[in-house]
Amino acid sequence: MDEPTEQQIHSLDARSLRGLAHPLRMRLLNALRRDGPATASRLAAKLGESSGATSYHLRQLAAHGFVEDAPGRGTARERWWKAVHQGVRFDESLLKDRDPEVRGAADLFLHEAAGQHTRELATWLGTRDEWPEEWLRSSDLSDWTLSLTPGLARELVGKMHRLLESYQELAPAADTPGVEQVRIHTHVMPVSTDGTDGTD
């Protein structure tokens, strides 16, 4: 599998962020990236939404450059959509934008991304008995606590990302026996050490 190029990663700006920062739009885009082209009705059935809602939000995603028509798949009665990019890059400066609408969209985007991680993990835990034993032995659910400076934390994140990118070069063809998509979540964040848990 080829490593994503800069053209395959979309850097969010204020305008495109406002177009993407909606729970259903983010779920639609994730589904198209992971499962390939689909129609609004197929996506509606997959996500438990109405086809009217999925059609509307797919058109909004298209207007902001996130999805487009899938060549050779559409008909006069059915429109097939595909994701334009393989991923997005979030700029932390969006959280401090002078426009409160942009700041709100940035906050919603991050919370929805975190929610997506939680849903994926819950799905794995709820269906893990359906997977072969070798996949159970190859999965991981762990956490670490380290004492780091901001500089060391950035260094750690960079090294983790480079390691993951190196495995894109090793990925076998999709039709290789035993190959499955593997989701990897990484979270690096400071935590309070004053005895509070941040939930008050």
Rank of each mutant, 00 (worst) to 15 (best):
E101K: 06
S139P: 01
H85F: 13
T75N: 04
F109R: 00
R154T: 02
K82G: 03
P100N: 06
L136I: 09
D107T: 10
A83I: 01
L163Y: 15
E169Y: 10
H187Q: 07
E169N: 07
G158D: 11
G126C: 07
P71D: 10
S138N: 12
T75G: 07
K96F: 15
R162W: 05
R162G: 08
R98F: 12
R77T: 07
T193S: 08
E101F: 10
W131K: 10
P100C: 06
P71T: 08
V67Y: 01
D140N: 12
A105M: 03
L141H: 10
R89L: 08
E165S: 07
R154W: 02
S139D: 11
R128A: 09
A105L: 03
A106T: 01
V182Y: 06
T127H: 07
H185G: 13
E120G: 11
G158S: 14
V102T: 04
V67T: 03
A76W: 05
L148F: 13
E155Y: 05
P71A: 07
R98N: 14
V191N: 12
P190W: 05
D194Y: 09
A70I: 02
A114E: 13
G178W: 03
D97W: 02
V102R: 00
R137K: 14
R162K: 12
R103P: 02
V182H: 05
R73H: 04
L170A: 14
G87W: 05
S142I: 15
L125W: 12
G65H: 00
P172T: 09
L95C: 03
G72W: 06
R154D: 01
V191G: 06
A114T: 13
M189W: 14
L95G: 00
H187C: 08
M189S: 14
R183Q: 07
A105G: 04
Q181N: 08
S147Q: 10
E68D: 15
T123V: 11
T193W: 13
W131D: 12
E180Y: 09
P172C: 09
T186M: 08
P177W: 10
L164W: 12
R119D: 14
T75Q: 05
V191M: 09
S166H: 11
Q86N: 08
S166I: 06
A76Q: 09
R103G: 02
D91C: 06
Q116K: 05
R77P: 02
V84R: 00
L156H: 01
W80Y: 10
L94Q: 01
H185L: 15
D194S: 06
A106W: 00
P172N: 13
W80H: 05
S142A: 15
G178F: 04
V179S: 06
P190R: 03
H64K: 08
H85I: 07
H161G: 04
D107L: 10
P150K: 13
S138V: 13
L163S: 13
F90T: 01
Q181H: 06
E92P: 01
R128L: 08
L125P: 04
L141F: 11
H117G: 06
A83R: 00
G74Y: 02
G178N: 03
G104N: 04
G158M: 12
Q116E: 11
L95W: 02
A70K: 02
R128Q: 09
